[in-house]
Design a protein around this nucleic acid. Structure first.
Lengths: 168, 168
DNA sequence: TTGAACTTTCAAAAGTTTTTGAAAATTAAA
DNA sequence: TTTAATTTTCAAAAACTTTTGAAAGTTCAA
């Protein structure tokens, strides 16, 4: 396989991976394009590289910057803005974990904690079933939370061993 | 908060969690409804509980069964089919991890492995950047794979072991 | 067998998300 | 200043996903 074909396939695959996990496909594709670019890319490079509109590039690049995995840089002598991706995949992984936990997991776990305080007669099997489920989810959530925090704080290599301690 | 309100909020929240991670919202809501049900539910119970059509229930319950976290049961003397969810959240977590890894992660990682074999002149910085990225992703993928496998294999007893810590 | 109870299927409709592209806003050079 | 290059915004269009519901299929008691 030659480079252009391999690049295209990587962009396609990275986009699919994102889409399956609730990330905008185009955002993941832009990320892929930047990951394999040896030089910073302009908005126009991304537009032509993926055949998408300027507005689409602008919106998705901004979101990648919000996630902390792409940076805007100014090239001396150039009017345009350029973009570079964080190339260390471990850092990319921890940044994504940190953001998604903060935005999507933490608020939901807060709600679930509230729900275990439901009023009701413990003789009612509906009440008992509900409370049992909430307690189980909370316990699981705490372990997941600990594992994710370990990962987020980790430098490479620490991850596997700390996760093992949490699980065992 | 009283039970009916708490149930509604749990269903809503569980659905949101699913939707954010690429799972059909209604499928997650059906799962929530079954998780807190003290008795098996029929298709009609689910239809009226969530106000959705028969076809929708059929399709999503089938998918929950494919994931191995819901089971069809036959109640003696009843013509209808009933459904129960696996109530142990750790088992639910490992089942979901096992299925998603198999369906969505493994095939993609296989492609990425292929891509690191790209032909090309190592003097070309495009080739070098591409290969570096592929190698980094692969290394990360292997660690993630090992961590996921450890989690998937961590069979039950989590309740027992946490209980032991409380007792001693 | 028959037919009522129940489940499954799937084309069309509804709903949601993503993308476009042109106008408005911003920036910086002349 | 003014002007041209560039970026941002956002309403409308396109694309995609989910849901419906009625017809077809299946099961089983009589």
């Amino acid at each position: 396989m030659k480079l252009p074909e391999a690049k295209a396939q990587f962009i396609q695959t990275w986009g699919l991976l994102g889409a399956q996990w609730g990330v905008n496909r185009t955002m993941a594709q832009i990320h892929a394009l930047l990951l394999i670019a040896p030089e910073p890319l302009s908005a126009e490079d991304i537009m032509s590289g993926l055949d998408i509109s300027r507005g689409n590039v602008n919106m998705n690049v901004r979101e990648l910057m919000n996630w902390g995995i792409v940076e805007k840089i100014l090239v001396p002598g150039e009017r345009k803005e350029f973009f570079v991706a964080e190339k260390d995949i471990w850092k990319v992984g921890t940044a994504i974990a940190r953001e998604r936990k903060k935005r999507e997991l933490d608020p939901i776990l807060k709600v679930l904690l509230q729900l275990s305080k439901v009023e009701g007669d413990p003789k009612d099997k509906n009440v008992r079933a509900f409370r049992d489920t909430m307690q189980n989810i909370q316990k699981f959530a705490h372990q997941t939370d600990a594992a994710l925090n370990a990962f987020i704080k980790s430098e490479e290599n620490w991850f596997y061993s700390t996760l093992m301690k949490v699980i065992r």
